[in-house]
Design a binder for these strands. Structure first.
Lengths: 336, 336
DNA sequence: GTGAAAGCGCTAACAT
DNA sequence: ATGTTAGCGCTTTCAC
């Protein structure tokens, strides 16, 4: 359709090979012919055909990012960080949101296998189905480099992992609530690791009570409706609650407020993720900061190096980023 | 690197051409050879090379979506809708967030020109720079089909536009606040159209007062800080405020609450967009619903048809979707 | 129905 | 320093 290299070469009176070299800034080309080719290319509005280039270079300069859902602000913010870093390295990002569907995930992996991306980052925390685990392993083994964020489905000798200590997120949150004087602390999550952190904190003070545990809990509205409904019925209500992410914490707060529960006076609520809006929620959300920018950047940095054929150091195969409790207004002290 | 068609053909004892036909479900191939090829392909874990296919087919099966910022939930939700529809049509989505940077936008357009996408959707409401306007025009004229969402930079004979009536968003919001009894209604936006709607509603009741207008206003924290600071200093404060999107409404509410202002008792606040979280904000946000799903879906539908070579009907060149006021808890009546 | 061959547009190795 | 040529892996005529 467009202007091809052949057109440029002809108009410039050089061979197609020379034109190619000139346009790729090769130093093996005469300065005069270089100028000539460049000027003709510009005049003709020549744009190199990326499809053809991809075929011969075995590379598309595209990186795939797989997240469970882009409408979760945490992943949108992570995607933003990944995208920024990717662009700085000259890559484009293809954003893949699986929406928790295994077959979507499978389709993306197939797409990656087809050679349309030079590498991929998986930020899907969900456990993969066994089927997808197999095809992902095959992808990694035979096709393109992969870096994981927060997922540890694979041995770190195969795939670098950029992560946080999930257990610690709920440990920190729970611990803080205990320090605030709470004794009946609820918990909701779908993640075993997070649950363990919650339980550990409570166990240290002999405060663990399975009655207050909602597990597994998804990010879906329905689950939170059910929890809030249950919270309204129960005779002894927790005075504090740890949510596995900010999205669910926010929904929970709103549903509780609608029931006439005051936050934090009646129930303190703690989220996780520190999404942009958590600071602007009302009350502003006590949460755990996850360094998404740094993690996204690191993931790209390592991935690009692997794509370039570098071997990553053992120390970079498994990097844990520090997390931090942000004390805000959705939590307050409890005095029996 | 991987298994190629040649490998499959050899193992199956047929020619490359026949293998290709078989794999593409051509009916011109003997059922026996078809079975043979398929089975060999499966055994060898053959995945067609998308780069090679893209070159010969002049198509990548990828659609580009350009948004101003993916961390704005409105665009994340729109992207989700676009992605879902694209996948249903067999396309992958490459998500491009310009972050308001003209050079990023230019880079994306160049990328599109290079042939890596079969079509593109621009949802960047911001005005383009003149430079980018030129290169976008060139993209549209010479390269790939484009559909706009909410942007009308181009004549509708060139590019179909899926939009809402921007003027009406703020008209509806302002009108509602007037109905609630408010007389001093503030406004913040960067969009002239939205401002016009606000002004029209107030003018109908002879209530317009430039004192309450903050224009232009961006989505940035700093702007909202400044507005809130100004609101605190002013002698006569508005009793209601129209924000140009939910993101800024939410930030504004939180900053006002921190200053001791009660929402909606002291100031009613109205957003625009109906992002997912607006219903879960506290107070839940009165806002204007924009049918993102329908718009995203329509954009893809039309784009795919243009890619397929269809000519779109005049009536589809400019489609306006209906918007709707959602009355929630961030607004209340005002009695002198 | 199948094989052979042309070619998509480009890069890179090889001649000259 | 430049031209020629051989592919990259695939689809698609065109003979047979």
């Amino acid at each position: 359709m467009g202007v091809t290299l052949k057109d440029v070469a002809e108009k410039a009176g050089v061979s197609i090979g020379t034109a190619s070299m000139a346009l790729n800034n090769s130093d093996k080309v005469n300065i005069e012919t270089y100028k000539k080719v460049i000027s003709v290319a510009r005049k003709l509005h020549y744009v190199p055909n990326a499809r053809a280039r991809a075929l011969v270079k075995q590379s598309t300069n595209i990186i795939g990012l797989v997240v469970p859902q882009i409408i979760n602000p945490f992943f949108a913010e992570l995607a933003q960080a990944v995208k920024d870093s990717a662009r700085k390295k000259g890559y484009n990002l293809i954003l893949c949101s699986t929406d928790g569907k295994a077959d979507e995930e499978a389709r993306y992996i197939e797409f990656f296998k087809s050679g349309m991306v030079d590498g991929a980052i998986f930020a899907s925390q969900e456990s993969l189905t066994n089927q997808n685990k197999i095809i992902l392993e095959e992808l990694i083994a035979n096709y393109i480099p992969v870096v994981n964020i927060n997922s540890q489905e694979f041995g770190s000798d195969l795939v670098p992992v950029i992560k946080i200590d999930l257990e610690k997120t709920s440990y920190l949150a729970t611990r803080y609530l205990i320090e605030l004087g709470h004794q009946r602390i609820g918990f909701g999550s779908h993640s075993l690791k997070r649950f363990e952190g919650y339980k550990r904190a409570l166990s240290e003070f002999d405060l663990y009570n399975p009655e207050f545990v909602y597990f597994p809990m998804q990010d879906f509205d329905e689950d939170i409706y059910a929890i809030v409904a249950s919270l309204m019925e129960v005779k002894v209500r927790p005075t504090a609650f740890v949510c596995y992410n900010d999205n669910s914490a926010i929904k929970m707060i709103q549903l509780l407020v609608e029931k006439g529960i005051r936050i934090p006076e009646d129930i303190s609520i703690c989220g996780t993720d520190n999404i942009l809006l958590s600071r602007y929620y009302n009350p502003s959300l006590t949460t755990i900061n996850i360094p998404k920018e740094a993690m996204g950047q690191k993931a790209i940095e390592i991935l690009v190096r692997i794509i370039a054929g570098e071997r990553v150091a053992k120390s970079e195969l498994d990097i844990t980023y520090p997390i931090e409790l942000l004390k805000r207004k959705s939590t307050t002290t409890y005095q029996g």
